[in-house]
C-alpha cells in the first residue's frame, strides 16, 4: 500500500480522532489568546505605568516568561501547583476539565507576556508628537491615549495579535504531554492503534498547516482592510 493510500485509509477510519483534536486545539488556542490579550493588556499597562514597583514586576514577569520554555511552564502548572496544594477543580460534565484548565492557564500565562510586548510596542510605535499635540491642546493623559494614541496603536497591534494566535496554535501541540486530547494527542493515539507513524504525522502536519494558513490569510485580509482605511 502506497503512502498516500495509507493516509487515505487512516483518515477514512480514524478521522474522528483528528477532528476532535482539531476542535480541542482550536478551543485551547482561542481561550489562551483571549485570556492572553486580557491579561497581556493589563501587563502592558503595568509595564508602562509610572509606579516603579509595578513596572518592575511587569518587566520581571515578561522577561522571565519569555525566557523560559513553555514546556517547563506547563509542567510547573500541571505537576508543580498541585504539590503546593493548588488544584484545578474537576467539573463532572466536561471530561478532563482540570487538565484542560492547566493547559489553558499555562498557555495564557505564556501568551500574556508576548501580548504585553506586542501592545507596548504598538503603543510606543505611535509618533511621540501625537501625544505632545494632544497634551499641548489641553487633553489629559488618559484622554490623549483614548482619543489619539490607542486608535493608531490598534492598527499596529491587531495584525501582531493575529500572528500570536498562529503561534499559539502551533505551540499548543505541547499540551498533549499532559494528556490533553488536542490534535497532537489524537495523532499519537492513531499511531498507537495503527503503527503507521509517518502517514499519521503527515496528516497532523497538514491539519496544523491548514489551521495556521487560514488564520494568517484572514489576518492578512484584515491588515489590508485597515491599511486602506488611512495611513
Amino acid at each position: 500500500m502506497g503512502f498516500f493510500e495509507q493516509i487515505a485509509v487512516i483518515l477514512q477510519r480514524y478521522y474522528p480522532y483528528f477532528l476532535d483534536g482539531v476542535k480541542n486545539t482550536l478551543i485551547i488556542a482561542a481561550m489562551s489568546v483571549v485570556l492572553g490579550v486580557v491579561f497581556g493588556t493589563l501587563m502592558a499597562i503595568m509595564r508602562m505605568c509610572r509606579i516603579k514597583p509595578l513596572r518592575w514586576l511587569a518587566i520581571a514577569y515578561i522577561e522571565f516568561v519569555r525566557g523560559t520554555p513553555l514546556m517547563v511552564q506547563l509542567m510547573f502548572i500541571f505537576y508543580g501547583l498541585p504539590m503546593v496544594g493548588i488544584e484545578f477543580p474537576d467539573v463532572s460534565f466536561i471530561p478532563n476539565f482540570s487538565r484542560f484548565m492547566a493547559g489553558i492557564v499555562a498557555m495564557s500565562i505564556n501568551s500574556c507576556a508576548y501580548v504585553a510586548e506586542v501592545i507596548r510596542s504598538g503603543i510606543q510605535s505611535v509618533d511621540e508628537g501625537q501625544m505632545e499635540a494632544a497634551r499641548s491642546i489641553g487633553f489629559k493623559y488618559g484622554e490623549s491615549m483614548r482619543l489619539v494614541i490607542l486608535p493608531q496603536a490598534v492598527r499596529n497591534i491587531l495584525p501582531a495579535l493575529g500572528n500570536e494566535f498562529v503561534t499559539v496554535i502551533k505551540e499548543s501541540s505541547i499540551v498533549s504531554v499532559i494528556g490533553i486530547s488536542d490534535l497532537m494527542y489524537g495523532t499519537n493515539g492513531v499511531i498507537a492503534l495503527t503503527y503507521r507513524s509517518l502517514p499519521c504525522l503527515a496528516i497532523a502536519a497538514i491539519m496544523y498547516f491548514i489551521l495556521t494558513f487560514i488564520s494568517s490569510r484572514l489576518i492578512a485580509k484584515l491588515e489590508k482592510r485597515m491599511k486602506h482605511g488611512r495611513a
Binding site: Q130, A133, A134, I137, G138, F139, V148, P151, R230
Partner: peptide, 30 residues
C-alpha cells in the same frame, strides 16, 4: 494649556482623524 496654542515643526495633526475632527475634537471634548 487650553489657552496656550502650540504649533509643531512636524505638524502633529491627529493621524486617526480627518481635518474636521482634528479641528473640532478639542473644543467639543474640552
Amino acid at each position: 494649556r487650553q489657552k496656550i496654542g502650540m504649533v509643531f515643526q512636524h505638524f502633529n495633526l491627529f493621524n486617526n482623524m480627518n481635518v474636521m475632527k482634528n479641528l473640532t475634537v478639542a473644543p467639543m471634548r474640552i
